[in-house]
C-alpha cells in the first residue's frame, strides 16, 4: 500500500516540478472563471516553457477585492507575482467600498472575454427583444430576470438595458443567483421571465432549442450567433465580461515589459488558443495604453450604472 502511495505521489512530482517562478493569485474559490483562467495560465506558461513552474493560490472573497487587497499590499515590487481579475472586480470594488482598487496594481493585459446573452425559455410567449422590452415598460415588476450575483456583470447589464429602454433601473425585478448554473436551471424550469448570463453558459441550450436567444451584448454581431445585438434591437448597450491579468504595484518599466512579454508569448501560443477554444472563451487580447484607457472607461460607466440601480450611494 505504502508503495502505491509513493508511486502516485511520484507521478505527481514528475508532473509538477518544485521550482516556482510565477505565483498567480486567483481571487476566488476553485471552480469559478478566475480560478479557471489562472489554472489555464499555469498550464500554458509551464508547457510553453515560459516559466519552469507556476503556482496558483486561491484568495477568495468579496468579488475578488480581498485577494486584490492582499496582493497589492504583500507583493510591492515583486515581478513574479500575478493576479487574475476582471470586470466583476470593477463593480465589487465600488459596491464593497474597497480601499484597494485596480489603480493600486499594474494591469498587464485583457486576456479573454465573454458577451452577455439575453434568453427566454422556449415555451415563453416572448419572441424577440422588442417583446421583452414592451413587457418591461408595461410592468417592470412582472419581468423577473435571473442572473448572477447582485452588482455583477449580469445585474449591471439589466440595469443598462432598462435605462436604455427608458425604464427606471431601480424598478427592475432582478433575481440574483450564486452562479450561472443555478440561474440557468431557474430559466429552464420556467421559474422566471428572462435570463441573462454569459453566452457560453447558454450556448448548448440554445442549440438544443430549450432556450430562445433574444440578443447579445456585443458591439457587433457575433460570428455563428443567430441573434441581434442590443444595439440592433434599439438599445444603446454593449457589455463585455472580460478577464485580465495584473502584476504587482511598484514595478520598474523593464520588469513590467518583461511580464508583458511573457504574458503576450503565452496568449499568442497555439496552446493558449486551443485552451480558449476548448473552454469557449473569446480571445480579446488588449494590452498597454489601449487597455488602460478601456479600463478607465469601464470603471467610470460602471460607477454610474451602479448608482442608478441603487447599489452604490
Amino acid at each position: 500500500m505504502k508503495h502505491l502511495v509513493l508511486v502516485s505521489l511520484f507521478a505527481g512530482a514528475m508532473a509538477l516540478p518544485a521550482m516556482a517562478d510565477y505565483t498567480i493569485i486567483a481571487p476566488a474559490n476553485p471552480g469559478g472563471g478566475w480560478d479557471q483562467t489562472a489554472r489555464t495560465m499555469q498550464t500554458v506558461l509551464q508547457e510553453e516553457g515560459i516559466s519552469p513552474s507556476v503556482q496558483v493560490q486561491n484568495v477568495p472573497g468579496a468579488g475578488g477585492t480581498i485577494g486584490l487587497a492582499q496582493f497589492a499590499s504583500q507583493n510591492k515590487g515583486n515581478p513574479d507575482a500575478l493576479i487574475v481579475g476582471g470586470y466583476v472586480m470593477v463593480g465589487a470594488i465600488l459596491t464593497n467600498n474597497s480601499p484597494v482598487s485596480l489603480k493600486d496594481v499594474t494591469p498587464i493585459a485583457r486576456l479573454t472575454g465573454e458577451y452577455e446573452a439575453i434568453v427566454v425559455p422556449a415555451a415563453s410567449p416572448i419572441q424577440d427583444m422588442a417583446g421583452l422590452i414592451e413587457k418591461l415598460k408595461a410592468d417592470p415588476g412582472a419581468v423577473s430576470w435571473a442572473g448572477g450575483s447582485a452588482g455583477g456583470t449580469d445585474h449591471i447589464a439589466v440595469g443598462l438595458i432598462a435605462k436604455a429602454a427608458g425604464v427606471d433601473p431601480t424598478k427592475i425585478n432582478y433575481i440574483a443567483y450564486s452562479g450561472g448554473g443555478e440561474a440557468l436551471a431557474a430559466i429552464l424550469g420556467n421559474q422566471v421571465t428572462a435570463g441573462i448570463s454569459s453566452l457560453g453558459e447558454f450556448e448548448a441550450q440554445i442549440q438544443a432549442g430549450t432556450l430562445r436567444l433574444l440578443a447579445v451584448s456585443s458591439p457587433e454581431r457575433l460570428e455563428g450567433v443567430d441573434a441581434p445585438t442590443l444595439k440592433e434591437a434599439g438599445l444603446d448597450v454593449a457589455v463585455e465580461n472580460w478577464r485580465m491579468v495584473a502584476a504587482a504595484p511598484g514595478l520598474s518599466d523593464e520588469q513590467k515589459a518583461k511580464v508583458t512579454a511573457d504574458i503576450e508569448k503565452m496568449a499568442k501560443s497555439e496552446n493558449w488558443q486551443k485552451q480558449l477554444a476548448d473552454k469557449g472563451w473569446m480571445d480579446t487580447w488588449l494590452a498597454g495604453p489601449e487597455f488602460e484607457a478601456q479600463l478607465d472607461k469601464d470603471i467610470e460607466s460602471t460607477a454610474a450604472i451602479l448608482k442608478d440601480i441603487g447599489l452604490v450611494k
Partner: peptide
C-alpha cells in the same frame, strides 16, 4: 513538503522551507 511540493497546495514558507527548497 508533501503537500506544497508534491500536491502544489499553497502553504506559507519560512526560513526552514526556503533552506531546503530555495525559491519554493
Amino acid at each position: 513538503t508533501i503537500f506544497s511540493q508534491l500536491l502544489m497546495l499553497h502553504l506559507p514558507a519560512g526560513p526552514l522551507e526556503q533552506l531546503f527548497f530555495p525559491g519554493g
